[in-house]
């Protein structure tokens, strides 16, 4: 087996994502200005050294707002992916390992759900579970993302079910639980990791879309999508608001996308 080499995609992706994460992390404890402090004298200021991303209609510092907003967005995306990955892996593991009628039925349902645009599903779920706030966004998106993770892990588990080393483990009297946990789960990490990067990106984009539509994060919370919604209303007078906020979203998704690309490339080269 050849040595795993870090490739360019992975490196650039890690740098971009790392920088954004670091800034968000700092922003969680300290922002240059109070993100909600208004100032009558500093309305609609173009980006400058004092206000890196300028100010909005109320004289609030956009850079500070973006830092806080990306914190919210990241938290929602991570929580969503966590729900989707954990529950999805559980469902995928059980159905893939045992097969049978339940497996068939669940996978049919899965096909139907994944064919449906995820943003629409999320909107529907939120209309059912109730008021629009960040917790319900996480719940709605988490539910919507379960099928895609379940599909990926199911394939991996079903593929491993008849592998030689699993058969020998079974012959040695290992229980199903032990086989699933000790022998199979570590081997699915390979397919789970790229799925997590894709899921994370979808979560960021979906949350941003929902908040942008006004059916997502609501004040006092502000996510990047919500900021973009705000920015659109003052587009003619403060175009830098939309530009800076949107660029941060795009960079985040781009960085994580490159990591995913890099991981896949590494996987291909090792195989």
């Amino acid at each position: 087996m050849r040595k795993r080499k870090i490739n360019g995609y992975l490196l650039v992706g890690l740098i971009i994502t790392g920088a954004l994460l670091l800034m968000t992390l700092i922003g969680a404890f300290h922002t240059p200005w109070d993100p909600n402090a208004m100032s009558a004298t500093e309305k609609f200021q173009a980006p400058s050294l004092a206000h890196l991303f300028g100010t909005d209609r109320f004289g609030r510092d956009i850079f500070s707002r973006v830092l806080k907003g990306s914190g919210t967005t990241l938290a929602i995306a991570l929580a969503t992916v966590a729900i989707g990955a954990v529950v999805g892996t559980l469902v995928g593991a059980v159905t893939g390992f045992f097969g049978g009628v339940v497996d068939d039925a669940l996978m049919r349902l899965n096909d139907a759900l994944t064919a449906f645009p995820s943003i629409l599903l999320a909107l529907l779920v939120i209309s059912i579970v109730g008021p629009e706030n960040k917790y319900n966004v996480v719940l709605a998106l988490g539910i919507v993302f379960i099928p895609s993770f379940a599909r990926v892990t199911r394939t991996a588990f079903a593929g491993l079910r008849d592998a030689n080393y699993i058969t020998s483990a079974r012959l040695m009297g290992a229980s199903n639980g032990r086989i699933l946990l000790i022998h199979m789960l570590p081997n699915t990490a390979r397919v789970l990791l790229p799925a997590v990067t894709i899921g994370f990106n979808n979560a960021v984009l979906a949350e941003a879309s929902m908040s942008f539509l006004g059916i997502g994060v609501t004040p006092p919370d502000a996510s990047l999508g919500y900021l973009l919604k705000e920015a659109q209303s003052m587009l003619a007078l403060a175009p830098w608001y939309a530009l800076c906020t949107g660029t941060v979203i795009a960079l985040l998704v781009f960085g994580v996308g490159l990591i995913g690309e890099g991981l896949q490339k590494m996987d291909r080269e090792v195989a």
Binding site: N201, L205, A208, S209, F212, L228, A231, Q232, L235, A242, G246, I249, A250, L251, L252, V253, F254, G257
Partner: peptide, 9 residues
């Protein structure tokens, strides 16, 4: 990576 609503804006 660029979300459609951003290009839209």
């Amino acid at each position: 990576a660029v979300p459609p609503f951003f290009t839209g804006i």
